[in-house]
Amino acid sequence: MPGKLTREQTNYLVLQVQRYFQSERGEELGNLETEELIAFFSRELGPFFYNQGVEDSRKLVVERMNALEDELYVLEQPVMKKR
């Protein structure tokens, strides 16, 4: 499960959300309601993004392990000499 945001991250997001609502919807949001909105979306959307990040990481690890396996085969020395 994703961790909590730092105060700096929260402040940044509050500003961004307030700017969005002001420019796109002509609405002004207060800090508290913006933080509540961010908390709601974090709870509802966060797990989807987190799980996608885990899946992306899983795929990357598998790709890297396959590449490493190929590299290890290249390092093998022949043990039987042909006559």
Rank of each mutant, 00 (worst) to 15 (best):
residue 9 Q to Y: 06
residue 46 G to F: 02
residue 82 K to T: 09
residue 56 D to S: 03
residue 43 R to G: 15
residue 33 E to R: 11
residue 55 E to G: 04
residue 72 L to A: 11
residue 2 P to A: 09
residue 75 L to T: 09
residue 80 M to F: 15
residue 29 L to Y: 05
residue 69 E to N: 13
residue 25 R to T: 05
residue 73 Y to F: 05
residue 13 L to A: 06
residue 26 G to Q: 00
residue 64 R to T: 09
residue 61 V to F: 10
residue 8 E to I: 00
residue 82 K to R: 13
residue 8 E to R: 00
residue 25 R to S: 06
residue 27 E to P: 03
residue 81 K to R: 09
residue 20 Y to A: 11
residue 79 V to G: 13
residue 78 P to V: 08
residue 7 R to H: 14
residue 67 A to V: 06
residue 30 G to A: 05
residue 53 G to S: 06
residue 54 V to Q: 00
residue 52 Q to D: 00
residue 63 E to C: 07
residue 67 A to L: 03
residue 46 G to H: 07
residue 74 V to S: 08
residue 40 F to I: 14
residue 27 E to V: 15
residue 40 F to A: 14
residue 29 L to N: 09
residue 37 L to F: 07
residue 64 R to F: 09
residue 58 R to T: 05
residue 11 N to K: 12
residue 20 Y to V: 10
residue 20 Y to H: 10
residue 8 E to T: 02
residue 71 E to H: 04
residue 15 L to H: 12
residue 26 G to C: 03
residue 74 V to P: 05
residue 26 G to Y: 01
residue 62 V to L: 04
residue 7 R to G: 10
residue 24 E to R: 04
residue 14 V to N: 05
residue 34 T to I: 04
residue 45 L to V: 01
residue 81 K to E: 12
residue 19 R to L: 13
residue 57 S to W: 07
residue 20 Y to I: 12
residue 30 G to C: 01
residue 1 M to L: 10
residue 26 G to F: 06
residue 50 Y to C: 01
residue 49 F to D: 10
residue 70 D to V: 02
residue 64 R to D: 06
residue 66 N to S: 03
residue 53 G to C: 00
residue 72 L to W: 06
residue 33 E to T: 09
residue 5 L to Y: 06
residue 6 T to W: 08
residue 32 L to F: 07
residue 27 E to L: 15
residue 54 V to Y: 01
residue 51 N to T: 13
residue 60 L to T: 08
residue 47 P to T: 00
residue 35 E to M: 10
residue 70 D to S: 13
residue 17 V to E: 04
residue 14 V to C: 01
residue 16 Q to E: 13
residue 64 R to G: 03
residue 75 L to G: 04
residue 20 Y to C: 06
residue 34 T to K: 02
residue 29 L to P: 05
residue 72 L to S: 11
residue 11 N to Q: 11
residue 16 Q to R: 15
residue 60 L to E: 07
residue 63 E to S: 08
residue 30 G to N: 10
residue 82 K to N: 10
residue 25 R to D: 01
residue 70 D to I: 05
residue 26 G to N: 03
residue 5 L to H: 10
residue 1 M to G: 14
residue 43 R to I: 08
residue 45 L to F: 08
residue 60 L to K: 13
residue 5 L to R: 03
residue 21 F to G: 00
residue 7 R to Y: 12
residue 59 K to W: 00
residue 56 D to V: 09
residue 60 L to G: 04
residue 71 E to M: 07
residue 22 Q to L: 15
residue 48 F to K: 07
residue 45 L to S: 10
residue 39 A to D: 15
residue 49 F to V: 12
residue 50 Y to N: 09
residue 31 N to S: 10
residue 2 P to T: 02
residue 71 E to R: 14
residue 16 Q to C: 05
residue 68 L to Q: 11
residue 2 P to K: 11
residue 66 N to T: 00
residue 44 E to F: 08
residue 18 Q to F: 08
residue 80 M to R: 13
residue 42 S to H: 14
residue 81 K to F: 04
residue 83 R to C: 01
residue 15 L to K: 15
residue 7 R to E: 15
residue 62 V to S: 01
residue 21 F to T: 02
residue 18 Q to N: 07
residue 13 L to V: 00
residue 27 E to N: 08
residue 51 N to Y: 14
residue 43 R to Q: 14
residue 13 L to G: 07
residue 10 T to A: 04
residue 78 P to L: 09
residue 2 P to C: 04
residue 5 L to A: 04
residue 69 E to L: 08
residue 70 D to H: 00
residue 25 R to C: 05
residue 25 R to P: 06
residue 31 N to M: 15
